[in-house]
Each structure stands twice: as C-alpha cells, then as structure tokens.
Design a protein around this nucleic acid. Structure first.
Length: 460
RNA sequence: GGAGAGAUGGCCGAGUGGUCGAAGGCGCUCCCCUGCUAAGGGAGUAUAGGCUCAAAAAGUCUAUCGAGGGUUCGAAUCCCUCUCUCUCCGCCA
C-alpha cells in the first residue's frame, strides 16, 4: 500500500511512476473522494467534540449533586438530541467513504524504483549477468537432450498419470531416487542459507488467514490465484459491512475480508514476512533473515495452456524462501545480497543461470524492484525462471504495520525483501536436464551427494 | 467437542457508568544531587488521523483499554458476537 500522504501531496509524480508499470490511477476519482472525505471528517469530528463537551458538562453537574442542576441537565440533554442524529449520519457516511478510499488504495501497486527499466512486459526485462561453470556457457550435448518429463519417466521415477488420477492436472508424483533428489535439494538449500548466509531456519503454517495475505499484498486483489479452505463455522457472519465501516472511521487498517477462512500459502513469503505484522521491533534486531522450506499452492487459473507439460507450473510445489526484514536505508543493499544468496545455490549446483532485472510492467504488485534468476534448460534451449527476488520497500510493511523504533524513539516502517532460494521443483527439473547422460541416467551434482547417500547417479 | 478463568500502555498492575489516554510500580530519556559507584530528588515517556500553518515546530480536535456491534447525553467499566491465552475433561499425531 502506498502512503496516502504521498498521494495527497504529490499525486502527479505518483501517477507518472505508476504509468511506468502500466497502471492508470484514476486521479479524478481520488480527488473527489478526498474532497468529500475532508469535509465529512471535519464535520464528524466537530460533532463528536460537541457531544463530548456536553457529556462532560452533564457529568460535572451530576457530580455537584445540586437539585438546581436537574433543569440544566435536562436542557443539555435536549440540546444534544439533534447533534446526535446528525453525528450518527455523519459517521455512517464517513465510514462508507473511508472504506471506499481504503479499497482504492489497497489496489494500487507499488512504485517502481528509479533503477527499474521502463517497459510493460517481459520483453523489456534486461539481463544483468550470466554465470556458468567455466567460460564456455551451458554444456553442449553430443546427443539430443531430453526434457525432464522423458528423463524422469524413462527412469520410472516420475509419474504424472498417477498424479492425475489422485488429483488432476498440474500435480506430480515422484518416487525413489527422484523423490530423494527432490528432498536433497531442499535440505541442501536450507543448510547453505542457514550455515553460510545467516538465515534463521523457520517452520511455518501452510494455512494462513486473510489478514496475512492482505499484509503481503495477495489480497484483496489476487484472491483467484489462491486456494481457499473454508471452515464452516456458525454459518453466515452477520453485518460484516457495518463492522468494516466502523473500523474505517477509526482509521485503522482494516479488511474487507471474511474472517475465519484459511488459505493455502502461495509462497512462504506470506508467513515469513507476516512474522513482523503488527510489531515494533528493536533496531538492534535488524536485519531479520528468515528462511523456510514449504510447499506452495497456486490456483494459476490465468495460465492454462502455458507449460502444461511437466512440473514447471504446478498447483503444488516446494520452495525454499528467503525473507529479510531490514532498515529502510539498507534495503537495496540487502536485495543485492539476497540475490547473491540465491545465485550461490545455483553456483554450488553448477547450474548455468542468468540474472534479469524486471521492467516496471513485469513486476509483481508489491515489488519496487525485482530480479529474476533464470536457470538454463537444455530441452527448451532457454533460461527459465527459478527465483524471483524483490524489494517491497515499505509497501508490505505499511499494510502490516511492521515497524522499528528509530533512535528518536519514533516508530518507522521497515522494508521487506523476499526471494526464492530456490524453487525446488524447478531446481529438480534443471538438475535432471543439465545432468542427463546419453544412456538416460542422471548424474548427481557433487554438492548433493552427501544428501544422496553418496550415490553419484540415478540409473535406469 | 464440553466446562471454567482471563485479555488494560515497552513491561507489571489498579480501575464496575462521568472531567480516564487511563492510578501506582518497573523500565527508558533528560536534569539535579554526589570523590566513583550505589542510593536519592525532579521532569518527561503510546499510536493513528483531521484541522490551523508556506513548511517545520507548535497548537487544537478526533479515535484507540483483544476485535466488532449494541445500550447511554456519556463506556476500560453494562449487554451481545467473535478471536486469542490459560486450567480441567474428552478426542487425537
């Protein structure tokens, strides 16, 4: 969420920044809402002040306990009648308006950082650097490289048919050495991040509430991408709408969301980042570096027909996530660092990759700057995304009210950074394809052998 | 799932309808006292928002005592709903 003060004081420049990412802010609507809000809020507060005055006066008269006062009290009571009905109406209108404004704000994406290239889609993303073991680039095959589906199925270890029977399309069933390799990858990643990169290993819930998803920006705008678990409790909630508007009057961060339901996490960024929701942390505790290995669940309703073959795009996949909660002045430094941590995994696995900076229009909703890391897939003769690392600046922190106390003792918003380190399923795909041999076997990368009972290949 | 107890500021804890944003204590900050330290004395110490203001500072108003709703001229206090924590019972990995 953007700082509403910024919209109030510098709307023009914000509109310009948002246009860079293809978001058209409705200026007229915002200004209209603001003008209305201002007058109604002032009015409401004046009426409240009057009410409080009269009440206090009555209180004083009562305390003095003098009979003469009864008349005066009655007068005051009479006087307050009209005031109160105006107030009620005014509060209601203000609530509705705050509600509308809040909703408007919540659906505005983050502002792209100055270093982010212009462009509205992936074509404008720019390559920053490229890495492969040795100078020659990705391995050149002296046979026709198969894709991971053929490799896995030929090994008899990858079974989409069973997965489809159990669940449907876009699920994976693995067994034997392949399942083990999958586990090895995540164990390996966790070990590197905790032992070499200073992250705290974390175990988190896979079901989270709507507030958490709101904090990181998935809700309210992207509900269709999520799997929702309903907990049929007490049937229908009563007047949710009234509750919300009341909340809005109080100017608290509030949610147009149903309480009670759970969502499967689309990434452990959600539980990890929400760790600091509604918290004021000490400056000494920064940076907070958290990592977790979790399954991730995505409905991906928008992408049917894309990557239908294999395990590139699944409803369920594992990911080792990196999250940093940092001082605002350190966040860009931390982003570079975090990208390096993710890259380090690929280096140790000796998988060729490149780092891309996403253009403004290709970034996610909450991001101010994003690097994608793409791993080489020989079967597709191209690089494919295996990690996405973003600095969200204060965008998520503002939604979450995640703060630290500055040296002056005042609470200030933190910055949040997240990135995959890495997507385990896609890492598995990359290993299978890059380490495949002519005879259909797959060599195990050196770094993973300690996790594989020291075997050096998966054989047919 | 059943029965009960509870939720107040950074922390502890008082407060059952009236001037309470909230006693007292601890902690923290500043000042005084003091060879040093300890002890002692004094002052300050929530968050968000509106308005005034060119801006800052400041002032002023509003809201906030787990969350939401209700009763009332007035709610931390009374009523309803929900969430969470604790204790006991049941069930379970």
């Amino acid at each position: 969420m953007l700082d509403i003060q910024l919209l109030r004081t510098d709307l023009k420049s914000i509109v310009g920044h948002l246009a860079k990412r293809g978001f058209a802010l409705d200026i007229k609507r915002f200004n209209d809402m603001e003008t209305q809000r201002k007058s109604i809020q002032t009015n409401t507060q004046e009426l409240q002040a009057t009410r409080n005055h009269i009440s206090r006066e009555i209180g004083q008269l009562r305390a003095n306990g003098n009979n003469k006062n009864n008349k005066k009290i009655e007068e005051l009571l009479h006087q307050t009648q009209k005031n109160l009905s105006c107030l009620k109406e005014s509060e209601r209108t203000l609530g509705e308006l705050q509600n509308e404004l809040q909703q408007f704000l919540e659906e505005i994406p983050n502002l792209p950082h100055n270093s982010v290239p212009n462009g509205l889609d992936g074509i404008s993303n720019q390559e920053i650097r490229r890495w492969s073991k040795g100078e020659k680039g990705p391995r050149i095959f002296d046979f026709i490289a198969k894709d991971h589906v053929s490799i896995g199925e030929n090994l008899g270890l990858l079974d989409f048919e069973t997965a489809a029977k159990l669940s449907g399309a876009r699920f994976t069933f693995m067994r034997g050495g392949l399942a083990r390799l999958h586990r090895a990858l995540s164990q390996f990643m966790l070990d590197i991040h905790t032992q070499e990169h200073g992250y705290i290993e974390t175990y988190v819930p896979y079901l989270v509430n709507a507030e958490s998803l709101h904090g990181t920006g998935q809700l309210p705008k992207f509900e269709e991408d999520l799997f929702k678990i309903s907990r049929k409790k007490n049937g229908n909630k009563n007047d949710t709408a009234t509750q919300i508007s009341q909340d809005r009057i109080n100017q608290k961060s509030s949610l147009p969301l149903q309480e009670g339901d759970w969502y499967l996490i689309p990434t452990s960024e959600v539980p990890l980042t929400n760790f600091v929701r509604n918290k004021i942390v000490t400056i000494k505790s920064l940076p907070i570096r958290l990592t977790a290995h979790t399954p991730c669940f995505r409905a991906e309703s928008g992408s049917y027909g894309k990557d239908t073959r294999g395990m590139i795009r699944q409803h369920q996949f594992d990911k080792v996530e990196l999250v940093q909660i940092v001082h605002p002045e350190k966040s860009y430094e931390a982003l570079e660092q975090l990208v390096g941590h993710a890259e380090n995994i690929l280096k140790k696995l000796e998988l060729p990759y490149r780092v891309m900076i996403l253009c403004a229009g290709d970034m996610g909703f909450s991001a101010a700057k994003t690097y994608d890391i793409e791993v080489w897939l020989p079967s597709q003769n191209t690089y494919r995304e295996i990690s996405s690392c973003s600095n969200c600046e204060a965008f998520q922190a503002r939604r979450m009210q995640a703060r630290f106390r500055n040296p002056g003792g005042k609470p200030e918003l933190l910055h949040t950074i997240n990135g995959s380190g890495l997507a385990v399923g896609r890492a598995l795909v990359a290993v299978l394809e890059n380490y495949q041999n002519a005879d259909g076997s797959v060599s195990i990368p050196e770094a993973l052998r300690p996790y594989m009972n020291m075997i050096n290949r998966l054989n047919i």
